[in-house]
Structure formats: C-alpha cells, structure tokens
C-alpha cells in the first residue's frame, strides 16, 4: 500500500512536469511580446524599459532556464507574478478558485443526489412509466452541449421567469444554483444511466437473492447489499468528474459571467498573461491527477476484492 502510494505520487509528479513543460514550450513560441504592452504602445515604447521588464519576468533567458525557475519556485509554493496587475498569481487565483469550487461542489452534489437517486429509482421500478421517462430524458440530455443548456437556462430562469439576474454573483448562494445545474445536468444524466445499469445488474446477483431468501428485511437488502455494491462505479465517475470541474469550467463560467478560474483563463489567454495561463493549467492538471488517485484509493476501500499494488 505504502509503495503503491509512493509510485502513484511519483507518476503524478512526472505528469505535472510533462504538462508544465508542454505549456512553457507552447507559450514560448506564441508570436508577440507578452510584456511589451506594459511599456506603452508599440511606437512609444522605450527599449530600455522593455528590456528591464524582460529581465524582471525572466523572459530574456532561454526556455529551459525559464522553465527551471518556474518549477523551482512552484516547489516552494510560489506561482510567480502576473503581467497586468503585477501581483502574485496565487493571490489573484485564490478567490477565483473559491468561486470555482462553490460551483464544482454544488454541481457534484447535484450529480450525486439527483443523478444517482433518479437512476436508482428507475432501476427499482424497471419498465414503469418513471423508468421510461428517465431513460428517454437521460438519453436525449447526453447529446446537449453545455453552452446550449446554459443558454436555455438563462432564457428560462433569468429572462422569462426573472428568478435570478443574468449576471451571476458568486457571493449570493442562491445564484450558484443555475450555473451549477448547467454544469451538472449532463453528468447527472450519465450518472443516472450508470446507476440504473449497475443496479439492475446487482439486483440480479446471487448474493441479493440469497439475502432475500434467508429473510433479510427488504430495506436492509437494499441498503446493505444493493446500494453498497451499485454505488462503486458511480463514485468513480463522480470523483473523476469533480477533478475536471475543479480545474475550471470555461464555458459555464463564461455564460454566467461567473468570476472563477475558467473565466480568468480565457481573459488571460487574450491578454497573453502567461503566468495566469500556466497557473490555471498547472492547477487543472494537478487536481485532476490527484482526484484520480483518490478515486482509485476509494475504489479499493469500497470493493475489498481489489488490491492495490
């Protein structure tokens, strides 16, 4: 177990190094001077100032040195300084990450409660009207892109019904609902289908029949035998999904003007604010890989047949 963890953590570091190296290489070859505009317009620029700026951000050094400096600072918890505000990247991204996390947590709760609940009910009442409706809706929903859902939501709840304002305010807990549902609804449909499928399989399993035959109360069979075993693939799916949600939901954040790291990323790209771009992408990769590891550990905990090695 200890050795497994160590190996996985080692792999994580390799993935992180690879991802940041690719990022650096890409940003390095982007045409244009990312800090040039800080020294004024193209004509009035003082070459000495530009040179000084390059020196300040280490842009006068070769790619591999810049990369080395970045990694060295990152290990010490420093993500560098951004180009436009000249503040530490961590300080800028911190509050935005809080907003993104609010969205991600709300979305995951929706996935787990509504998605898994709806799917479980459909499996228990197989071939009922409810089952048919759930199958139909989830089948169609998975074909909807996030931005279409977002626009439908905005149209219905913000414009027609006027329940919420069009521009989201992350500090108002009510306003997290709309973007969270937008972000979660496709995943919830997938979770519902996954839950239904697994549960139907578990309901047919011999150990469930045995439990019923030996007279275990139905409630207990459902909770202890059926639920515990059907929930494993769902946990895996939701965990990995949470990892990508925490990395920033560019589309949803853009539609709802949600001030999270996804929005920060798209603005930073336009402004060639490379330290922010690298910061968000590094965070996205790190949290994704980390949650994958957590999911694997959880998997082994929920299913004792699986041995980690």
């Amino acid at each position: 177990m200890g050795r497994y963890l160590l190996r996985r953590l080692g792999q994580m570091i390799v993935v992180l190094l690879g991802a940041t190296l690719i990022l650096f290489a890409c940003l390095f070859v982007i045409p244009g001077d990312p800090v040039g505009s800080l020294a004024g317009s193209e004509r009035s620029r003082d070459p000495a100032v530009v040179e000084q700026l390059h020196k300040r951000y280490g842009l006068d050094k070769p790619l591999i040195v810049q990369y080395g400096t970045y990694v060295n600072k990152l290990v010490h918890g420093d993500m560098g300084e951004d180009y436009t505000q000249r503040r530490p990247v961590a300080e800028i991204l911190g509050p935005k990450l809080v907003n993104t996390s609010k969205l991600a947590i709300a979305a995951i709760v929706f996935d787990a409660v509504i998605g898994a609940g709806v799917g479980a009910l459909a499996a228990l009442k197989r071939y009922s009207l409810w089952d048919t409706v759930v199958t139909l809706i989830t089948t169609i929903l998975v074909g909807f892109p996030t931005f279409v859902i977002g626009m439908l939501m905005l149209n219905l709840f913000a414009v027609q019904l006027k329940w919420v304002p069009v521009i989201g305010d992350p500090s108002d807990p009510v306003q997290v609902v709309l973007p969270a549902i937008t972000l979660a609804i496709i995943d919830a449909a997938l979770v519902a289908r996954l839950m239904r499928g697994t549960m139907l399989e578990v309901l047919r399993a011999d150990y469930v029949k045995t439990a019923i035959a030996k007279g275990v109360p139905r409630r207990q069979v459902l909770l202890k035998h059926v639920m515990r075993n059907s929930v494993i693939p769902v946990v895996t799916y939701i965990g990995i999904s949470f990892g990508s949600l925490l990395g920033g939901a560019i589309i949803t954040e853009t539609i709802f003007n949600w001030d999270g790291i996804g929005m920060a990323m798209s603005t930073a790209i336009q402004q060639q604010n490379n330290p922010i771009v690298v910061g968000v992408a590094t965070w996205g990769v790190a949290i994704f890989v980390l949650l994958n590891l957590v999911v694997d550990l959880l998997y082994a905990m929920l299913d004792p047949r699986i041995r980690l090695s």
Partner: peptide
C-alpha cells in the same frame, strides 16, 4: 503511456485553446 498520461490529464478545452493561441 507516460506521455499519454500527460495529455490525458490536460483539460481538453484549455489545452485546445493554448494550441490555437500558438
């Protein structure tokens, strides 16, 4: 497979946006 791990971990849209900026 280790290289695949790196590309697999990249969020698709963010990765695509960076390539397109280049």
């Amino acid at each position: 497979m280790r290289v695949a791990d790196v590309f697999f971990a990249f969020p698709l849209l963010i990765g695509a946006i960076i390539i397109i900026t280049v």
